[in-house]
Computed example of a mutant assay.
Amino acid sequence: MSILIHQSTYSHTQQTSPVMGRPRQFVPAEALRDALKVFWEQGYQATSLDDLTAAMHLSRSSFYACFGSKHAVMMAAVELYADELFARLEAMAAASMSALEAVHAVLAAIAEVDAGRRGCFFVNCVTELAPHDPALAAFGQYHVGRTGALIAGLLERAGFTPELAQTRAVALLALVIGTITLRKAGLPAPELLTILSQAQLLLADTTFST
């Protein structure tokens, strides 16, 4: 449970500012989104520097001057993706719906059962790289921690004790990440929805802890 109770002090990547010599009209944020698309489609290891520079419309010299390295671009892309998703989840948690309705909305937004076999960019990167990439592992723990804390806060609003809210939040995250993995494996959306519906069992009892 420590991943939720003791949230990581991970510090976001400091992106290098654009320098002289970049192409005219070059916008780093747009180039980063182009890189994200390539990494999402091909994975990190299979993406070459030529793939990135072509997608980002950069020469190698401009790429290195603006972003530093392939790994730095990947980290910035993962952070961008996760931060934007988390902002959406926070908005759902703050919306005028019941706490349990907000939990269901958050889980559905993470699972994206109709999004096809690409999977979740964050989960894809963590699965591929985190075991041997300390920086990505640290960010992964940070993002899972803040998402779990968000869900646990909603469960407390719904009447769960703080300890049980933490336990159930971890179980719900495990369920939704498993659903994402099965989506990537090609399970049809109706079956994924059936799996995700098992969250109701974890939300039905505010007093019993297994």
Rank of each mutant, 00 (worst) to 15 (best):
S197T: 07
H57V: 09
L193K: 11
R88S: 08
I180E: 02
A72R: 07
E112D: 03
L187V: 13
Q14S: 12
A109T: 02
A91C: 04
G145H: 01
A189P: 03
F122T: 01
F63V: 01
L49S: 08
R183M: 13
Q200V: 06
A165G: 08
Y10E: 06
L155Y: 05
P131Q: 04
L4F: 10
A189S: 12
G145F: 02
F121L: 05
G186M: 13
A169R: 09
H132F: 13
V103K: 00
P188S: 14
F63E: 01
A204I: 02
P190A: 15
A171L: 14
V73H: 05
M1G: 14
A77Y: 01
S59L: 12
E30K: 13
A29V: 08
S62W: 08
G140D: 00
S17T: 15
G21V: 07
A35V: 07
Q141P: 07
T53W: 10
S17L: 15
L52A: 02
T207V: 12
T179A: 15
E41V: 11
V113L: 04
S62Q: 10
I180V: 12
M1Y: 11
Q7G: 11
R157Y: 03
A77R: 02
E156N: 04
T16R: 15
L192E: 00
A199N: 02
E90M: 06
R118W: 06
V27M: 06
G148E: 00
G145C: 03
Y142L: 03
A111H: 01
P18V: 12
L136Y: 03
S69I: 11
A93K: 01
L129C: 05
F63I: 04
F208G: 01
S98M: 05
S61N: 14
Q141N: 13
T9G: 15
V103P: 00
V170P: 07
A95E: 09
A95T: 03
A105C: 03
A189I: 10
A95L: 05
Q141E: 14
G153P: 03
A135R: 07
A171S: 14
A185N: 10
A55N: 05
S69Q: 13
Q14Y: 11
T9I: 15
T206R: 09
V19E: 14
V27A: 08
H143S: 04
S61Q: 10
A130K: 05
A138C: 04
G43Q: 07
T161G: 10
L32M: 12
L107D: 00
V170T: 14
A95D: 04
E41G: 06
A55I: 07
F160D: 02
P190D: 07
E84N: 08
I110E: 01
G43A: 09
M92T: 07
T207Y: 13
P134T: 09
F160A: 05
P18N: 09
Q7C: 12
V78S: 04
P23F: 15
Y142G: 00
R146N: 09
N124E: 09
F39I: 03
T179D: 13
L173Y: 12
I177S: 15
L196K: 01
L187I: 15
